[in-house]
Amino acid sequence: MKVLLDHDVPHGLRLPLTGKHEVATAQYQGWADFDDESLIAAAEGQFDALITLDTNLAHQQNLGSRKLGVVVVDLHPVVPSHLKASLGKIRSALAMIGEKPGVVVVREGDIDRLEA
């Protein structure tokens, strides 16, 4: 699965997610200045999933018609060590996206698929 890390996701998550996934960052792709809509449009067709910390993205963008799956990581505090401790949940969310594209939210206690 090809995964794109949004601008707000620490680059340190890229390496731990590689292995099963090919992971790139928005900055590496040259998309650091893209707004959400432009980033999603650019990623669609090149990536299978976008990982973001932007909890409003699913409500601000029309993602139901997109082929790009989105994993929204809603964890606090947003620090690399806390995100790395939640890698198992993030991997599970990516597996859910692999089965059926859509929006999956990773929270402290659970993983939820948002219905379009």
Rank of each mutant, 00 (worst) to 15 (best):
M1F: 12
K2N: 15
K2S: 12
V3Y: 02
L5A: 06
D6H: 10
H7I: 07
H7R: 13
P10R: 10
G12W: 00
T18C: 09
T18Y: 02
G19T: 05
K20N: 12
H21A: 08
E22K: 07
V23K: 04
A24K: 10
T25N: 11
T25F: 00
T25A: 14
A26Y: 01
Q27S: 13
Q27I: 02
Y28G: 11
Q29A: 15
Q29R: 15
Q29Y: 10
W31E: 04
A32L: 11
A32C: 06
D33C: 02
D33K: 15
F34L: 15
D35C: 12
D36I: 10
A42P: 01
E44Q: 14
G45F: 07
Q46D: 08
Q46L: 11
I51R: 07
I51A: 06
I51K: 05
T55P: 06
T55I: 15
T55A: 14
N56A: 13
L57Y: 10
A58I: 07
Q60C: 01
Q61G: 04
L63F: 01
L63Q: 00
L63A: 03
K67F: 02
V70M: 09
V71I: 15
V72I: 15
V72E: 05
L75G: 11
P77I: 11
V78S: 11
V78D: 13
P80Q: 09
S81E: 14
H82W: 02
L83R: 00
K84H: 11
A85P: 01
S86Y: 05
S86R: 14
S86T: 05
G88I: 06
R91M: 07
R91K: 15
S92K: 14
A93D: 02
L94Q: 06
L94Y: 02
A95E: 00
M96P: 03
I97P: 00
I97H: 00
G98F: 06
G98Q: 13
K100C: 08
K100A: 12
P101S: 00
P101Y: 01
G102R: 12
V103T: 11
V104Y: 00
V104C: 03
V104W: 03
V106P: 05
R107E: 06
R107V: 03
E108S: 14
D110H: 13
I111S: 09
D112P: 00
R113K: 12
